[in-house]
Simulated assay, not measured.
Amino acid sequence: MTPLDDQLFDAPTPFMVLVRPQMGENIGAAARAMLNFGCARMRLVAPRDGWPNPKASAMSSGAYKVLDRAGVFDDLSAAIGDCDYVYATTARGRELTKPVLTPERAMIEARAMAAAGKRVAVLFGPERAGLENEDVARANAIITVPVNPAFYSLNLAQCVLLIAYEHARLGLEAPAEVMTMAGTDFATSIEREKLGDHFEDRLQSAGFFFPPDKAEHMKLNLRNMWARLALTRADVQSLHGMLRKLVGARGQR
């Protein structure tokens, strides 16, 4: 293990506890989803096909370190015995008196508890029917994803990914939107102005600004459009070239 790996496994992320998982492929896919979003602490409760499982390793797409370090337990009590707070993921009403949270709200809480030195676990049920009521009863709160009520079944790895993503998202200061410039810069004000002049000149020659009493307002709208568009220098050069080509083609005709 590298120092980076040790740091990842020691990070106070939630324990993702897969309760009686059935297929090795789904365990591997869950490990991949976890590592995608910086979660590496997996625990397995009585995996149906035993452990280790070569199908899990094959499906993990390189997240084998999560599988290698996964804790394996005979029962749920042992798997969560050292945890201070436990969430159970379920889409069905359980007629149990517990807080029901969205993934976002739950991970806000989980981060706050981790910052206070608490150990948090999230339970995920087996693929066929999810967690049993006896499992959910051991949790402090329920996480329910707001899915389509007419089709609420989630794949195990999908559910793990949703929780891991919310946990990671809340810890990142990633901008909601960025512009990839692809080797160019935004056009300057003077470059946009010259483009506007070019268009006005060509449109004037084509008789576009008609009737005359509306010409000034039409030109104003065009100037406003150029200012509103996030044009790059390459965009401006392309538009100039298009105009020149169109005028040249018209002259040839």
Rank of each mutant, 00 (worst) to 15 (best):
L44G: 05
G125A: 04
N148E: 10
N26W: 11
S77N: 09
N155E: 05
P146H: 09
T144K: 14
S57A: 14
Q158K: 00
M59T: 10
A115L: 13
R41G: 00
D74C: 13
A29Y: 12
D84W: 06
A157W: 01
F151T: 11
Y152P: 03
E95C: 07
V122R: 03
S61K: 07
K65H: 13
G125F: 09
N53Q: 07
R48P: 01
A56D: 03
N155D: 06
A58D: 03
Q158E: 14
Y64F: 12
N148F: 14
G93L: 04
A116H: 12
L162I: 02
A79Y: 09
P99C: 00
E166D: 11
A70E: 10
M113A: 00
G50W: 10
F37D: 01
A129N: 15
V100M: 02
C83G: 02
R43T: 02
V145I: 15
Y85H: 08
A121V: 03
A139D: 04
A58W: 00
S57H: 13
S153I: 15
A168P: 01
A141C: 02
W51E: 13
I142D: 03
G125K: 11
T89L: 06
L156G: 07
N26R: 14
P126N: 10
N26C: 01
L162M: 10
E95K: 15
L170I: 10
L154Y: 09
P54E: 04
G50I: 02
V100I: 13
L101I: 00
A150S: 12
R169S: 13
V145G: 04
L154G: 05
S153R: 11
G81I: 01
A112N: 10
R92P: 12
V122W: 03
A70D: 08
D135H: 14
P99N: 06
W51K: 15
E104I: 08
L123H: 00
R105L: 04
T89R: 05
E166S: 15
A30T: 09
R111E: 03
V120R: 01
I163W: 12
A78F: 01
A106M: 00
A30K: 10
P149N: 13
C39S: 08
R92S: 11
R128A: 02
E95T: 05
E95S: 11
A70W: 06
C83S: 05
D84C: 04
L156S: 12
Q158S: 13
F151S: 04
G50A: 08
A58S: 08
A78S: 15
A112I: 03
L44W: 11
I27T: 15
N36I: 12
G50M: 03
A63M: 07
R128N: 05
F124N: 02
D82E: 15
R138P: 01
N53M: 06
R43S: 07
L162F: 07
A30L: 07
G130F: 10
L170P: 07
R111G: 13
A58T: 11
W51P: 09
P126M: 07
A110W: 00
A46Q: 08
I143W: 01
A129T: 13
A33V: 10
L161V: 08
